[in-house]
Each structure stands twice: as C-alpha cells, then as structure tokens.
C-alpha cells in the first residue's frame, strides 16, 4: 500500500442511520492516515448537508466543490483543499446548495479512477440513508467501513446496509462500533460487542468510546485523533493502525475509564 502511488485504496464510510459518527470517523481516520505519512484524499458525498469541512476546520478555504468537478467545470485538483497542518491530507468538499441528484454513481466512479494514481487512500464520507446518495457514494469504493452504535436501531440499519453493500458486490466490509459507554454496557443497559456480533457477524476494526472530547474537538475543527490524551483519539489511532495492516489488540474500555478516574482523583491527569 505505502509507496505504491499507482493504486489508492478507496474506502467508503457508511452507516445507514444518521448521527452515528460517519463524518467524525472519516475525519479522524483521514487525519490518522496522514499522520502516518500517507497521502490521503477525503471526499464528502453528503451533498446539501456537508459537514466534513467543518470537522477539519477547512470551511473558509473552499473554492470549488464535488459538483463542479463531476460536471466538468474544474479539474479535481483545483477543488482539493489541503489541510492546514498535514500537507498530505486533502479534502474534496461537496456542494452545500445542490442536492444528492447532482452527482451520479458513474461520475464518482470516474473521479475515483482519475484520483487513484495520486493517493494512497481515498476515503468517501457517505450520506445517511440507502437512497441515491448512498448508491453514489459506494459506487467507486473497493471496500467499506460500516459505522454503528451500540443501539438496536443503529445495529439494524447497519445490518441492512451490509445487505445492500452485498447486493452491490462490495464484499470487503469492516465494522466500527462508535460511541460505546462502558459503564452502561457493564450494567447491561447497552448492547455489548457480543450482541452486535451476533447480528452483524463482520470483522470489527474499532471500538470507540463515547468521549466528550469528540464534541469539543469537532467544534474546534481539529479531529480528536490529534489530541494526545483522549480515549476516543487512541481508539481512532488503533483503527488507523489496523487499516495499515497491523495487528493491534482492542483496548479494554472498562479498565481504562476506571484507571482514568483513579488518576484524576489523585490529580495525575
């Protein structure tokens, strides 16, 4: 993968249900891969409801968007927004004024093919739902990351999405479980990994705890993976290493929170 600039891995990040953290995950994995010296492009396909630029703090640098590119007004390189800090991370934002019908699957596939030779990774942030926006977003992808939450409706929607991905012959599917609250899982008030695996039965590459730091970092436009001391940031770092092919053990969320609380009690944090 690394050094081989002829063929980027194209990953679509999808979930079915809204609000589970697709965009947050895209931003964090994107930054994480860039921190590992990979050349990364992030494509926002949530036309009309774009957010990815906000999370990266790049809103005021946008000149052109995805619709300009797919409609042939500008070459994609002109629309790419380089990240402030990581010069090998680029965002291809989408339009906020158009809607999902402005980009069709063929156009995105063509664009991905064009971009493939320039990058190590291309991450596509997919809109919620299973309609046209979803079909467009998955069209050019080699593999998919399904983001879900330990909540029955999110898991059901993830299941449906995995079925839809299968119908579109996308068989390389990985799972990220986001916004886990260890205490609630412990008390049996939240689905645990076994419950989720029972239904979804696909390889899990990440378990991300619900962390207040995600909210603050989102508002600042700096993905949480850039902060040193957050649990969610560490979880995302592990996900990035797993994407790069490393075998990383899952961190024990329960023990960690307890330790952290202990540390805080002794003023060590």
């Amino acid at each position: 993968m690394s050094g081989n600039k002829t063929r980027a891995e194209i990953i679509v990040i999808t979930s079915g249900k809204g609000g589970v953290g697709k965009t947050t995950t895209t931003a964090n994995i994107g930054v994480g891969l860039a921190m590992k010296d990979k050349k990364v492009a992030l494509i926002d396909t949530d036309t009309g409801l774009r957010n990815l630029d906000l999370l990266l703090g790049l809103e005021n640098r946008i000149m052109y968007d995805l619709v300009d590119v797919t409609e042939g007004r500008v070459p994609y390189k002109k629309a790419l927004v380089p990240h402030k800090k990581f010069r090998n991370l680029f965002l291809l934002p989408t339009s906020q004024v158009k809607d999902k019908s402005s980009v069709n699957p063929e156009a995105l596939m063509k664009l991905c093919d064009e971009m493939k030779s320039e990058f190590d990774y291309i991450l596509i942030d997919c809109p919620a739902g299973i309609e046209q926006g979803f079909q467009t977003a998955i069209a050019g992808a080699d593999c998919a990351i399904v983001v879900t939450m330990p909540e029955i409706s999110a898991v059901r929607d993830a299941d449906k999405i995995i079925g839809e991905l299968g119908r579109a012959d996308k068989d390389n599917i990985k799972l990220i479980v986001n916004r886990i609250r260890p205490q609630m899982v412990e008390q049996g008030d939240m689905l645990d990994m076994k419950d989720i695996n029972d239904i979804l039965s696909i390889t899990c590459i990440g378990q991300v705890p619900d962390d207040e730091k995600v909210v603050t970092s989102t508002n600042r436009g700096e993905p949480v993976i850039m902060t040193e001391d957050s649990l969610a940031g560490r979880a995302y770092k592990n996900i990035v290493r797993r994407i790069l092919g490393e075998d990383v053990e899952f961190m024990d969320l329960h023990k960690d929170t307890f330790l952290r609380r202990l540390k805080r009690a002794f003023g060590m944090n």
Partner: peptide, 8 residues
C-alpha cells in the same frame, strides 16, 4: 448459502 440480513 449466506446470511439473510434485514430487508431481504
């Protein structure tokens, strides 16, 4: 010969 997922 596969898992039937929601909606199938």
């Amino acid at each position: 010969n596969r898992t039937l997922r929601g909606g199938q």
